[in-house]
Design a protein around this nucleic acid. Structure first.
Length: 548
DNA sequence: GCCGTTTTCGGCCCGACTGTTTTCAGTCG
């Protein structure tokens, strides 16, 4: 059975061919459908079985038909036929930066070039010289891009937790250089997507040239790709592309909204504006020549009679219609997290580490800490906190901060040797030996939290299992935790989420903000997250479960 | 090919930047 990602790739392939064939609007239509399919929280086959394919934004009669054929046979006749129309190498050319469908088509039809290698030959043989529209600079640009593409694979999207550290460095570097008034990140980074393809940084400053100069000299920056009066594009040494834009304060909100996206969200917004005789661009909202908004994002949405929409929801999945009806339900915030339910002390930790953790927790105004006192490691070995540490945990218990004790084990149960180990709840963490949830409805214990589960299919099965256990699920970065899709699946199944607070990590650690972003992308409000509740409420639920 | 509380047909976001151009085409985001 093809996955959603397979179907999305198929439609992108169709779009590429149609692009080269010179179709005007169909390519975007297929790409739109591809994006929608990718962001679904359930399998395409399930949607098809319910007869709901047409409810997917961008899917109409023709594409519904094609999805059904593809799901049924694993092929698509239309795509097979299309592929015969264009040499495969021409589609490869589309991946070369700066080279689009129009140019690829001309190479193919006017020069008989059918792929990257042939194009490189043609350049070397000076067959492009004198061709209309291709001056020496353009030819050199293509030659260099071809050589670069031949060596390295296309730059992969970066996990957001990795991009976070880079973004923090860049922003700190720009601030340190001076001349920066306001600086914010935009793009898919701000929307909290799992991966980012590039970074977008927005600055207000009286002296854009100074900002661009400083940016070009940051140690992370490898190459300046282009630089104009309002924007500079660089490629970092690690390969990540970063766009920096300098805007005037009166347009900051409009620019921030514009560059945050998503594309589909913005398209909807601008067509709404047009219906009202307004025009939205990165400089503001305009009625004729007059700017009627743009200093803040609230102004931009306000001119369309929309409530402000949190960036994590801006994917054109119904958020605009919801914002037209009134303020959106609040999403969970960092300050809503009043405790942490999944903390580890480092191996060999002593009483002093407990004190450290407690001090940090107090400073961050957390009122409870769920600490793992014994765990089955992923390699099946077992470890328990030292008696000294356990004693220290008891001593801090009365001081305004509650410590609750967890044991962490696989889904096959907790080891018998822990029978006398005092604990308040159980965290299930899948072991290598049991990577999939048990099929029996009940296990010998009631898990309170299922942690370290990820993956599209496997995540869905663990969420279903957590539901059968009355357990919460952990959200966070990395392949072994639930991302925003997993979090949405959980929320829709009314399985509570648990978010890491990062209290056991460095101040700039991305785990907490990234997890929070995933939960928000899933539409989670405070009540969807278990560790927004006071500890008494949580422990009451645990003891009720134990009696059941 | 999709889409519609002004449309079932006629639209489809919009601007920066680059290179090649005497006014614009292509690409990108």
């Amino acid at each position: 059975m093809p996955t959603n990602a397979d179907a999305a790739e198929l439609f992108r392939g169709i779009a590429d061919v149609l692009d080269v064939l010179g179709e005007r609007f169909k390519p975007e239509a297929y790409r739109r459908a591809a994006r929608s399919i990718e962001s679904l929280t359930e399998g395409l086959a399930d949607v098809a079985a319910r007869g709901d394919l047409r409810t997917i934004p961008g899917v109409g009669d023709a594409i519904e038909e094609k999805i059904r054929e593809y799901l049924g046979t694993g092929r698509l006749d239309y795509y097979d036929r299309l592929q015969k129309e264009v040499p495969p190498g021409i589609l490869t050319l589309l991946r070369i930066p700066g080279l689009g469908p129009k140019t690829a088509r001309r190479f193919w039809l006017e020069l008989g070039v059918e792929g990257p290698a042939e194009l490189a030959d043609a350049i070397q043989q000076h067959r492009l010289d004198g061709v209309k529209g291709f001056g020496p600079k353009k030819i050199e640009q293509i030659r260099v891009a071809l050589a670069a593409a031949a060596g390295a694979p296309a730059a992969a999207r970066l996990p957001i937790e990795v991009a976070t550290a880079i973004a923090q460095r860049l922003v700190a570097g720009l601030r340190a250089a001076g001349g920066v008034e306001q600086i914010e990140l935009a793009g898919s980074f701000r929307r909290g997507r799992e991966t980012v393809g590039d970074l977008d940084i927005l600055v207000t400053s009286a002296d854009p040239e100074r900002i661009f100069d400083a940016f070009s000299r940051l140690p992370d920056v490898g190459e300046v790709k282009l630089r104009g009066g309002t924007k500079e594009t660089v490629v970092l040494r690690g390969g990540l592309q970063v766009d920096l834009r300098v805007v005037e304060p009166a347009a900051f909100g409009a620019a921030w909204q514009y560059f945050t996206g998503s594309k589909d969200h913005n398209v909807r917004l601008r067509s709404l504006a047009r219906d009202r005789g307004l025009k939205i661009n990165e400089y503001g909202v305009f009625r004729g020549e007059e700017r009627v908004g743009g200093r803040t994002e609230q102004e931009v949405y306000g001119t369309l009679d929309l409530a402000w929409i949190p960036p994590e929801l801006r994917e054109d999945r119904g958020e605009i219609d919801a914002a037209a009806k009134g303020p959106l339900p609040p999403l969970v915030e960092r300050t809503d997290l009043v405790g942490d339910l999944h903390l580890h002390l480092p191996p060999g930790a002593g009483a002093r580490d407990v004190d450290q953790l407690v001090a940090t927790a107090r400073a961050r105004k957390l009122s409870y800490l769920g600490l793992v006192v014994a765990r089955v490691e992923p390699d099946a070995s077992r470890s328990t906190l030292s008696t000294a540490v356990l004693d220290r945990l008891d001593s801090v218990k009365s001081a305004g901060l509650t410590i609750v004790r967890a044991v962490e084990a696989g889904a096959d149960g907790i080891p018998a040797e822990w029978a006398k180990l005092r604990h308040d709840y159980v965290i299930v963490r899948p072991t290598a030996a049991q990577a999939e949830p048990p099929t029996s409805a009940r296990t010998p214990f009631g898990a309170a939290l299922v942690a370290h589960v990820g993956g599209e299919e496997s995540g869905r099965r663990w969420v279903a299992w957590a539901r059968s256990q009355g357990a919460a699920v952990e959200v966070g970065p990395g392949p072994d935790r639930l991302d925003s899709t997993g979090a949405r699946t959980a929320r829709e199944a009314r399985v509570p989420l648990v978010l890491p607070t990062g209290v056991d990590r460095q101040e700039d650690d991305p785990t907490c903000p990234v997890a929070l972003g995933f939960a928000r992308r899933a539409g989670a409000g405070p009540s969807d997250v278990r560790n927004t509740a006071p500890v008494a409420e949580i422990t009451a639920a645990w003891s009720k479960k134990r009696r059941a």
